[in-house]
Design a protein around this nucleic acid. Structure first.
Lengths: 195, 195
DNA sequence: GCCGGAACTTGTCAATGCCTAGATACCGGG
DNA sequence: CCCGGTATCTAGGCATTGACAAGTTCCGGC
């Protein structure tokens, strides 16, 4: 369908086509391998066409990050408790590796972009809501640290997973499932987690 | 001293000069901003000189990663217990941000490089030694997961720190100190950590 | 003192990012 | 229906970069 309308001057949905191609490249070869001209070739348009939608190479990556945060917020929203939110965190990284990488590499995108700020705020909110669902430990200082701890745990696991550092430790086990039991080890769900 | 011998044909220690300049650029502007020609200019040599020492741009980054793993192994070796090893992990990331970034971005370097493999093995060993120092929990499966959990926690904290995501959560507190108390919250040191 | 190789230079080429000017298609008001 | 404005895309050009090839300078061992 999409390939039939090849001879039209307007692509129809070039922005999405470029984005999708970019995600493909980033996921398989990393963000460094990304080339605007290459993406243009893949989409069958001229080499300057992408610039109209994204201005820059950085602009494209900013759009990727913004889209990533939006999807991320949605992915986190569905989880019932803190642990499942962590699982969702890991699942998102595994399912959207390109988004995840760009989101957490500040030197790749423009951190002050309005769209990015908006979607990132949504994701941050979804994240914070998860921590708020914790059984209150009492002292407020600990609460904040607990939130950082949970975030660190999920983020570290996701990052190590994407960089291939957990391959032999997991031995082909399902990463999500591994994280679920791992989180159980650390944050004991029942029993007031001792402190 | 170094600047006096400017007019010699041979630089004297170009390899180190390039490496240091590269670390500077990566730390301030990210790995994407790295340019061999720019590094050559900074060192006052011709644009092709770096290639003789590192072959490639990828070769340079591989050297950075290898050096990083060596420094990393040393940094981890000094820590007495698991928690302090985590603190050392975070301290290393904060002290050597450029090394850390490149080490954990597989698309930037050549993962099969012999030097890199050697130093990385040393670091892995230092890391595993820390987990082995844990009070044995009994079941072997849990041990492995506990190791992954500790690694994830430290790595996630370090990564989030470097990407600026902990700035407001920490509010100017010393990151190392924050991680120390955070680790205390999660892995309760005395008392058989409940499970 | 000489000779082989390491360290560095100069020159070149293809590819890329970005800019500008121009062509083409779509869209709403008359 | 058509006509002007605008969004979309093309074409061309320029500076920079990474990689390669061939030459030059220097060092150390024999």
């Amino acid at each position: 369908m999409t390939s039939e309308r090849e001879r039209t001057y307007h692509h129809g949905d070039l922005r999405r086509a470029i984005l999708t191609a970019a995600l493909d490249v980033i996921a398989t070869e990393g963000p460094a391998a990304l080339s605007l001209r290459d993406l243009a070739r893949r989409a069958g348009v001229s080499h300057a066409a992408p610039a109209h939608h994204f201005k820059d190479r950085t602009g494209l990556l900013t759009a990727v990050a913004a889209e990533g945060y939006a999807l991320f917020a949605d992915a986190l929203a569905g989880a019932p408790d803190l642990r499942e939110r962590g699982v969702a965190y890991v699942r998102f990284a595994a399912t959207h590796p390109a988004h995840f990488q760009v989101m957490f590499q500040p030197d790749l995108h423009r951190a002050d972009d309005p769209d990015l700020l908006a979607t990132r705020a949504r994701a941050t909110e979804a994240l914070r809501a998860g921590v708020a669902g914790l059984p209150p430990v009492g002292r407020g200082e600990d609460d904040r640290l607990t939130g950082v701890a949970a975030w660190s745990l999920a983020h570290g696991f996701a990052t190590l997973l994407l960089t291939g550092n957990l391959a032999d430790a997991l031995e082909g086990r399902d990463p999500e499932e591994a994280f679920r039991s791992l989180a159980a080890l650390v944050f004991t769900p029942e029993e007031g987690r001792g402190r």
